[in-house]
Structure formats: structure tokens, C-alpha cells
Amino acid sequence: MRISRSLPPLYIGLIFTLLYLPITLLVINSFNISKYGYVWQGFTWKWYDKLWHNTALKDAFLHSLSIAFTAATLATLLGLLMALALYRYRFPFKRTASALLFILMLSPDIVLAITFLIVFMALGLQLGFWSLLISHITFCLPFVVITVYAQLKGLDRNLLEAAQDLGAGERSLVRLIILPVLRPALGASWLLSFTLSLDDVIISSFVTGPGYEILPIRVFSMVKVGVSPEVNVIATLLLAISLVSAMLIALLLHRKKDEKT
């Protein structure tokens, strides 16, 4: 009986150990004097210093963060508009639109990557910032729409009808009733889009251009041949950013709850 009770936490612990072990190793090695990181040879900041002077890598890192930030913001906005359109209105090709979102969500990255590459070539768009941004927005969209739509479905339709009977126009309806209800869904969508964008390798490899290199492409060329301690530093910084944002989000949500009570 005791074994069966301690088994679940053990199993969950084991999975999390496996999930975090590789990243933890990178974090530790980002401070390790040894380049190859097989043994601990002492503490150093030299890899951080090296990253600071590696302009190409630093730029790629900043580019990735700006693409993720911009794409998450625009995808959330665009996804909100789409979810509203699908929820509020009947229009021609509505079934097609939802089927397309569905396909977009399920298509493997490699398929989306070549569809984007082909359409940018057909449109004559130079590969670089814009092609990256458009494709990142697009692959985040279905996840935003499904999150926002789920919350809209939970909305009491009577509330909307009452507001309309009292003379509220479509825009004030959205602004005063729908948007406040959607705030948590929008927050979650932004976060998910940001995550998806930062994590992407496959689509970015196809639609990137020489003018705007982002992290995975730069890192790929560095780690393909050997060991690069600067990559450990990048991993540490990304993890730090994510943990800080996670705490900020938790704090924000917590304060929301306090205000309510």
C-alpha cells in the first residue's frame, strides 16, 4: 500500500528530472571554465563575456526575442478578430475558414514551412524579417483562435442580447462586454504564441533570409560541428527570462484574485 502511494510522485518527479536535466546541464556549464563541460573546473563569467562580443549570435538572440514578441502580439490580435468573426457572424466560406484553421493546427511544421516558402516566392517577398513575422503569426493563429473561441462559447448570450436591446452597437459590445471576459484567454494565447515562436526551428529555417538571422539558424551552424559554450549562455538567459516572466504572470494573476475578494 505504501509503495503504491509513493509511486505517483516518484513518477512525476522522474519525468520532470528528465525534462529539466539537459537544460540544467547547460546552465551549469555556462559558468564552467572547461569548454567541453565534462568536468567542473571552476566558476567563470568568460562565456557571458564571449557572447557579449559575439555580435552575430547576440543579434540573432535579440532578433528571435523581437520576432517572438511581435508575432505573439499580432497573432493574439488577429486571432481575437478571427474568433470574434467566427463566433458572432454567419458568412460565406465560414466552414472553409474553420477547416483551414484546423489544417493549420495539425499540419506538421515541415509542411507549413514549405507552404510558406513557396507562397513567399510566388508573392516575390524578400525572405527576412517580414517572411519570418508573417509565418510565425500564421502558425500561432489556430491556437489563439481555439483558446479565445472556447472562452467565447462560455459567454452568456443573453448578456449580449440585453446589451443590444439597450442600444449598444457592435463595437461597444465588443469593448465593454466581450473583451473584459476574454482577458485571461488573451493572456494565455499571447503566452502560448510567444512560446511557439521561440521554440520554432523548422519553419524559421525555411523562411529566414540573410538580412535577418534568428537564433535557431545561428545556433545550428555553431553546434553542428562542435561544442559552443556561448550556446549554454543563451540557454541560461532564455531560462532566466522564462522563469522571471512566469513569476510575473503568477504575481499578476494572484493580484487579480485578491482584487476580486
Binding site: 525534462l19 539537459p22 545556433v219 543563451i234
Partner: peptide, 20 residues
């Protein structure tokens, strides 16, 4: 906590596996 590692790009995580 399960999705936090995703913020470290999956290519970097694959590189970490290579070291492991």
C-alpha cells in the same frame, strides 16, 4: 513547468541532449 523548457529553443535542447 512542463512547457517552460520550450522557451529555450528546441534546437538548443537537442544540443543539450547531444552533450548528455
Amino acid at each position: 513547468l512542463m512547457i517552460v523548457p520550450f522557451w529555450t529553443n528546441s534546437l538548443i535542447r537537442t544540443y543539450a541532449l547531444k552533450l548528455l
